[in-house]
Design a protein around this nucleic acid. Structure first.
Lengths: 342, 342
DNA sequence: CTGAAAGCGCTTACAG
DNA sequence: CTGAAAGCGCTTACAG
C-alpha cells in the first residue's frame, strides 16, 4: 500500500486529499474541511492534516473544486485592439485588480468583432464566472449565449443602446465637449475630427460631444477623417487634412495613438509648427503622450477608477445575478500639454 | 419529467450531457462519444444527439472534461514588467499563438520576482498544462513546484545557468556586439551603457556583448548607468551621462523604452543634436522606435519567431514530458534609423 | 466533531 | 455500435 502510493505519486499523479487523509489517518472529508472550509475540526486532527499535507506537498485542485462549487473564479477578458498602448494598461489593471480580489484572468485575443463571436463561446466552456469585454461590442447573439449560461458581462469602454448589459465608460460626450470648449477659447477657426474605429459608441460620443459643443458656440466641424486607431492611420489622416487648401487649425483625434501620427506628420513631414500652425488634441492619455518629444494635449480617461468600477460591478453580479443593470460613466479630465494653443 | 428539465435549466443549471441523452433517447456515454470523441456511433444516433444538443443549447463543460482528462489546455503566462510596450506585443502574440493551437491563456500580473513566487503556485492549482515565464526568472523553489506538479515551463527572454529549464531568447550577446561594431565603425570615442533591470541574463548579455566587442577593438566601456526599464529612468540616466565633463558620444541602452528617455533628454532638455552630438541606440524595436519623432536606431528582437518557438517547445513538453531541455537563441537584427551615426 | 456517501459533468475502459 | 459503471478530485448535506 505504502509502495503503491509512492509509485503513483512519482508517476505524476498529483497528491490528492485522499493521500493526505491516509497519511493523517482521517477521512478525506476531514482533510477537505481542514484545508478549505470554515467547518470546525478538532485541534489535533487539524495538526495532523496540515502536517501530512505539507509533507506530501499537497496542492488543492482548483478544477475539481470549481466543478463542485459551480464557480471557477476565472473571468474572461476580451480586448480587441491589442496594439493600442491604452489597452496594455487596461489589461494590466484588470488582471491586477481581479487577482487582488481572488479571481483569475483568461485573456482572449481577438482581432475584431467576428472573432469575438467565434472565440468567446468556446471560452465559455470553461465556465467563466464572468466576462469583461473591453472595447468590443456584445451582439445580441453573444448576449444570448452569456445570458443562457448565466455569465455576467461588463462592457468596458463601450455600451449598447438597448441596454441590459452592464457598462463602464468614460464620459466621452463630455470629453469631446471639453476639447471643443478649450479649442474655441484658444481662438481656433477650422475644426477637424479624426475617427478611430467608427461604429463604436466611443467614437460616436467623442465626435458628438465635440461637434455639438462647436455648434452651440457658432462653429462647425469642417472636416472629418476616418482612421483605424493606429499611428499610421493617424499620419495618413494628418496628410490629408493638413495639405488641404484651407487646412484645419485644430485637429481632435479619437485616440492618442492617432493624434501622435498626426503630430509627427505635421512636425516632421510638413514642417509645420505645433501648436502655432495647428493644434492637435488626443484622447486617452497614454504614457507616450507625456513624452517630451510628443507633449500631446489630451483627455485623460480615468482608467484607475474605471477598472475597479468594472470589476466591482462584475463581482456583484457574480455574487447575486439578476441585479439591476449598471451603466457607469466616469468624467474625464483635460490634460494641457504642448500640442495645442489653449 | 419534461417540466422538471425545463425548470432546472431555467434555474441556471447548465444543460448537461445527461439532458441531451434523455432528449435524444440514448445513453449519456453515447452523447459524449458523438460530441467529443473519435469513437464511431451509428449515423442515426449521431443525428439525434446533434439535434438534441442544438435544441437544448448544450455547451460542453471544459472544466469537467479537464478533470477527467487530466489536462486543462490552459497555459499560464507570467509577464513581469507590464508597462514596457515590448511586453504588450509579447502578450498579444502568445495569446494568439496559443489560441490558434487550441490552448487558453491564464494571464498573471506580477510586479516582481517576489510576486511570481507567491502567485504562480496559486495559479498552478488550476492544473495549468504549462507555464510561460516572460521576463521573470525561475527560482529553484519555483522550478521545484512546477517539476512536482509536472508542469512544463518555458522561459522567454531569460535563461538560468544551471539549465534544466527550456528557454527562448534573442541572442543578446550578439545583439550587444552588433551595436558596438556599428558604433565603432561610425567613429565614436566614448561609450556608455544603460542597464535595464540588472541581475537578469538579458541585461548582462547585452552589456557583455557590447563591452567585449568594444574591448576587442581597443575601446572600453567608459560609463555604466543603471536604470529600471522605464522612460523616466532612461531620462534620468541621460541627464547624468550627458552632463559629464567628458560626456559619451555613444549611448547604448538595454531597452528602447529607456533609450527614448535618453533621446528626449538629449534633444529637448539639453538641446543636443542627435546623432551629431551623441548617438543613441536601443534594444527591442518597439513600435514607438519607428515613430518619426523618435526614429530610434535599435536592435530588433525577432518576436515573431521567438513566440512561436516558445509555444512549440511548450506544447512538445506537454505532449511528452521529460524530453530534452531546449535552449533556443534567435539572432536579432540591427535596425538603422536616425538616432545614431553609423 | 467526523465519516460515509452523493454528486459536480464529463471520459473511457469493459462487456456485450 | 452502445450502455452501465467507474473514476477524475473535490464539497457538502446527512447522520451519528
Amino acid at each position: 500500500m505504502e509502495k503503491r502510493t509512492a509509485l503513483r505519486t512519482r508517476l505524476g499523479r498529483q497528491v490528492s486529499q485522499k493521500d493526505v487523509a491516509r497519511e493523517a489517518g482521517v477521512s478525506q472529508a476531514t482533510v477537505s474541511r481542514v484545508l478549505t472550509s470554515e467547518e470546525t475540526v478538532s485541534e489535533e486532527k487539524q495538526e495532523r492534516v496540515w502536517r501530512a499535507a505539507r509533507e506530501l506537498g499537497y496542492r488543492p485542485n482548483a478544477i475539481a473544486r470549481s466543478l463542485v462549487r459551480q464557480s471557477t473564479r476565472m473571468v474572461g477578458l476580451v480586448v480587441t485592439p491589442f496594439f493600442n498602448p491604452y489597452y496594455s494598461r487596461v489589461i494590466a489593471d484588470f488582471t491586477r485588480e481581479l487577482q487582488e480580489r481572488g479571481f483569475w484572468t483568461m485573456l482572449l485575443n481577438v482581432d475584431d468583432q467576428d472573432s469575438v463571436e467565434e472565440t468567446l463561446p468556446e471560452a465559455l466552456r470553461y465556465q467563466l464566472d464572468g466576462v469583461i469585454l473591453a472595447c468590443a461590442t456584445l451582439s445580441s447573439r453573444l448576449a444570448d449565449e452569456c445570458e443562457r449560461s448565466g455569465t455576467p458581462v461588463v462592457l468596458f469602454n463601450r455600451y449598447v443602446l438597448d441596454a441590459k448589459v452592464h457598462s463602464v465608460c468614460c464620459d466621452n460626450v463630455t470629453g469631446g465637449a471639453m476639447v471643443a470648449k478649450a479649442l474655441i477659447d484658444g481662438g481656433h477657426e477650422r475644426y477637424a475630427y479624426v475617427s478611430g474605429v467608427q461604429e463604436t459608441s466611443t467614437d460616436r460620443d467623442r465626435m458628438r460631444g465635440f461637434a455639438e459643443e462647436l455648434a452651440s458656440r457658432g462653429y462647425r466641424l469642417a472636416y472629418h477623417e476616418v482612421g483605424s486607431d493606429t499611428y499610421e492611420s493617424g499620419a495618413e489622416a494628418g496628410r490629408h487634412l493638413l495639405q488641404r487648401d484651407a487646412p484645419p487649425d485644430a485637429v481632435f483625434c479619437a485616440t492618442d495613438l492617432m493624434a501622435l501620427g498626426v503630430l509627427d506628420v505635421a512636425r516632421y513631414e510638413l514642417d509645420l509648427s505645433v501648436p502655432r500652425d495647428v493644434s492637435i488634441v488626443g484622447f486617452d492619455d497614454i504614457p507616450m503622450a507625456a513624452w517630451r518629444g510628443c507633449s500631446l494635449t489630451t483627455v485623460r480617461q480615468p482608467v484607475d477608477e474605471m477598472v475597479p468600477a468594472a470589476v466591482e460591478i462584475m463581482l456583484k453580479a457574480v455574487e447575486k445575478p439578476g441585479g439591476e443593470v449598471v451603466e457607469q460613466r466616469i468624467r474625464p479630465t483635460l490634460v494641457r500639454r504642448g500640442s495645442a494653443r489653449l
